[in-house]
Nucleic acid binder design. Structure first.
Lengths: 221, 221
DNA sequence: ATGGATTATCAAGAATTCTTGATTGCAAAT
DNA sequence: ATTTGCAATCAAGAATTCTTGATAATCCAT
């Protein structure tokens, strides 16, 4: 939390430490830079008006060093200020005075998206693809996948409900193109079907349009 | 865009279509459900007060069908309302009347995070790991990686700047544990170093603490 | 300096995975 | 009914990848 007012920092610290978060505070941008060397935060709360500079410019600087979500905190409620912050690489913008529960909820939303919880994963309830572990979990059941199966499924999950041509699939999961792309893809699709169960545990359907396109879609809700 | 007021929808449509977005409108929740079968949106704008139900409850329903970011639009500016929306699975909350540029910026921030652009990827400038293509791009240079190298690097990128024990790495990239975990990890680390260049193109350093821990950190900004 | 512990490197066999060819099945069009 | 085009399946060789063992190098403490 980059915030120059000591009491604001203290209030936040108490609230969020109570929620189980670990907070590292910085009361100047210089200190924030220093802290960043030591710690690698999962999320950054950034006051826009700091004694030694603008939070907006600092945001650009931060983006070079970390991809942690940045939430601006400020009294300035002008629209252009919000736009500027978000364009500068910020992820959210909260105006003071704010309700701690609101801030907490916004933090939760950001962490859910970008945090350790979901990075390296693609979620499409009840399917979860974990690229770090190299496996998928479908409706609670773990399925170990090979690299190509993983890539293929990732591709389908990403474009669930949309038509994907052989060519497009190959381009995304293999890169480039090949005369035997259709055949290769078909074989891996077959393997995937075998592992997921032809009908994806009753949740998904991986069908072929008959015109060189596959479509992966949810059939139950 | 789920919005019952036709003129609001029209204004948004004009603005965002001008920006190159494709907009599908729904003036009732029933219609929205129907549209969702036909299209698979990249992002959902959801009015909270709809004639045939509450947007909050619809949000929970939506989360079963799609993982697209949901931005609530509403006149209600009470804190608890914001909290409710975000806890219900929403990603952002904008109160009417809103500035179109602000909304656009918030949409941009969400898409940057969750859209097709970054899913299946881990970004840590200037390193980008692409799990769908099975490769990493380091400072503009493409490096083809095997599955284990990809998992390992993903793990490091995710915990950049922090100490990671052999055991922790193995648990995250292999799952479980093994008596030869340290050895196995060491070999793959060596392979990774060979491919990335020992000093990660001058940007990163993958060092060993000497006490069974690796640390992957950025050395230039 | 020396010994011990830890990490790095090299190599090879084992295991897995990928691709391709051959064949079968299916459905629409003739 | 036959043909034709596309999709699905099976199988096997080729290629890659993973693991493990052996060995060398490094670092720290004594």
């Amino acid at each position: 939390m980059v915030e120059d007012e000591a009491d604001v920092l203290a209030i936040n610290r108490e609230y969020f430490e109570g929620k189980g978060y670990a907070i590292v505070g910085a009361s100047t941008l210089a200190q924030a830079r220093f802290q960043l060397e030591e710690y690698s935060p999962d999320l950054i709360l950034l006051d826009v008006m700091m004694p030694d500079g603008s939070g907006f410019e600092f945001c650009s600087e931060l983006r070079q060093k970390t991809n942690a979500p940045i939430i601006f905190l400020t009294c300035r409620d002008e629209n252009e200020s919000v736009v500027k912050g978000l364009l500068q690489g910020g992820d959210d913008y909260v105006t003071k005075p704010y309700d701690l529960n609101v801030l907490s909820a916004r933090i939760g939303a950001q962490l859910r998206r970008t945090g350790v919880m979901t990075a390296g994963k693609i979620e499409l309830f009840p399917l979860s693809i974990d690229f770090l572990l190299g496996e998928a979990v479908l409706d609670g059941e773990r399925v170990s996948l090979t690299q190509k199966e993983l890539q293929l499924l990732g591709c389908f999950a990403l474009f669930a409900g949309r038509r994907l041509s052989y060519h497009e699939i190959y381009r995304r999961a293999w890169g480039g193109s090949s005369p035997s792309a259709a055949h290769t893809v078909a074989v891996h699709v077959a393997n995937l079907r075998k592992k997921l169960g032809t009908n994806g545990a009753g949740w998904f359907e991986l069908s072929n349009s008959g015109k060189g396109e596959y479509i992966f879609s949810k059939v139950r809700y």
